[in-house]
Amino acid sequence: MVDGDQEPAAAPEAKVPVGRSPGQLMWLRFKRDRTGVISAYVVLLFFLVGLLAPLIAKLYGNNPYTVYADERPELFDSAGVPVQPNGGISGEFWFGLEPGNGYDVFTKLLYGIRNSLGISLAVTLATVLTGIVLGVAAGYLGGRTDFLISRVIDFLLAIPAQLFFIASMPVVVSLFVSPRDETPVYVRVVALISVQWFLGWMSLGRILRGTSLALREREFIEAAKVSGAPPGRIIRKEILPNVVTPILVQATYMLPNFVTAEAGLSFLGVGLVEPTPDWGQMFSKAATELVMQNDITYMFFPGVSMIIFIVAFNLLGDSVRDAFDPKTAR
């Protein structure tokens, strides 16, 4: 959608003609969408929880690194399963204790959400930036640049993504540290971000290429060119403000995908490893026979929280798209 497309009459409430920017119109439409607002609050809650995890853990009194199987062995039976029913839920341990090492599930989940969301947010930022630079460059400059970038996109799309992630994780890690040494956490984080970024930007890049290709032919770009604006200025001042919509919509679709992909990697054992808390790694703990044969309470905490997060984020994505582009029917 382009600025010029918005006629003032498109605002249904505007009985007295009031000038509203497309951003204001979008905000108005979004506020009326109850599903969207609720899911926005849920998503916001998750981000707040992630952000404030250390504070919440401090107030609550436990931390995700204490091995309660060693500290308080009376809470566990000989196999390492919490003695109390329902995964050891009590006033002291709100979500119970993890079978095996006996970490506190509540703080582990908080920190897991924090780490997973942090990584996914970084991946989203990196992919969006790359998508903007390469997509807009391909679309606006055209010619040889366009050909080159489009072929790169075609090529990268042919790579089996998940397989590439797990295959390249050890290689990327080995770039930083020798395989004989212990891998520091930040190296794993950097590796996780970079492999997902490498294969994550193409869809957005392709969309932005198409959009800026169409924009290039518009009169206002031509007018800017005639009045002597350099290409850098045209891209910054004329093209970029008009591609904000697809960027926002795509980003809200991309982020949950990155969250589940990152969790999948940790689930397979190539992402973050213990004792660093991680959402996906909790699933791999839940998939052990110790949990599945005894008390399955533990697996619901990461499972249900992730479903809520993904559903809320997908609904939010739909609402953002509807608010920006009311013409497309669902």
């Binding site: 589940t260 969790a263 999948g264 689930f267 996906g280 699933f283 791999s284 839940a286 998939a287 949990v291 599945m292 044969q293 399955i296 697996m299 990461p302 499972g303 992730m306 479903i307 993904i310």
Partner: peptide, 12 residues
């Protein structure tokens, strides 16, 4: 839903 949640749940 994710397979790494649904799968272990179904198994359990």
């Amino acid at each position: 839903m994710q397979i790494y949640f649904l799968g272990p749940l179904a198994l359990a």
